[in-house]
């Protein structure tokens, strides 16, 4: 599904504080699997995730998405791919304060200009699936952490993405909420979504839902364990 070849990312190029966050990553991420990126702080997980999710472009190297080379695409087209293919769940939920839960869920679909009624219904259905119907008109800053995250998940799903990207999704949650998140993740994975996430949390990384763990250190992949849970993985 996603193929990375010799991905490098440099920050502050040509200045004295030039920094190579990624130094040649080769990686294959299969479709309909849950992949976790693991590694110490500063190892480049977030940087890699943002390249995979078309949030940024690699300084060099190739990214292939379903066979199409997308590494040289300008931002305009990356955005297009991003909103059709990826849904994001961030560590700090990143909801827009002052808007209701429902509005937040609908936001990614605004630039597509679809029918409002359809969009509205879809957002309500997603919130209902995540047991948030009763809170849909509430402003997001009044929601609890777990509720906020579920709103963020609903938002990630509004454009029907094939791939869900989650950066440290459980870092702001307690154990019970983390378990709940993993349960949602399991459902998504079972419904055929590809999930790519980063985490320190053993609860996530060691969970049986995760099919593949990629260990990173200093901007390189040190170990790629693709053998886990092959029994459970869908055909």
């Amino acid at each position: 599904m996603i193929e990375l070849t010799d991905i490098r990312k440099a920050f502050n190029q040509g200045r004295e504080n030039e920094f190579h966050a990624l130094g040649g990553i080769d990686l294959q991420l299969p479709a309909q699997r849950v992949t976790a990126l693991r590694g110490p702080s500063g190892s480049g997980k977030t940087t890699l995730l943002s390249i995979i999710g078309c949030l940024s472009r690699p300084t060099s190297g190739r990214v292939r998405l379903k066979g199409q080379d997308i590494s040289g695409l300008p931002e305009r087209f990356l955005t297009d791919i991003r909103r059709q293919t990826f849904g994001f769940v961030f560590q700090q939920f990143n909801l827009i304060k002052g808007l209701s839960a429902l509005e937040n869920v609908m936001l990614p679909a605004y630039p597509l200009g679809g029918d409002w009624r359809e969009l509205h219904e879809k957002a309500q259905r997603l919130l209902g699936d995540l047991r948030l119907s009763h809170r849909r008109e509430a402003r997001v800053e009044w929601l609890s952490g777990g509720e906020q995250q579920r709103v963020a998940i609903a938002r990630a799903l509004i454009n029907d993405p094939e791939i869900i990207i989650a950066d440290e999704p459980t870092a702001n949650l307690d154990t019970a909420l983390s378990m709940e998140f993993m349960a949602i993740l399991e459902k998504l994975s079972a419904s055929g979504k590809t999930v790519i996430l980063t985490s320190h949390d053993p609860l996530v990384v060691d969970s049986s839902i995760v099919h593949q763990v990629v260990d990173m250190r200093d901007g390189r992949v040190v170990r790629q364990d693709t053998t886990r849970n092959t029994m459970e993985s869908p055909a």
Partner: peptide, 19 residues
Amino acid sequence: AEEKREIGILKAIGWETGD
């Protein structure tokens, strides 16, 4: 800072610079 963050969020969830 709040507004900057908002625009960042919009862009991350699929709004284009032009949007």
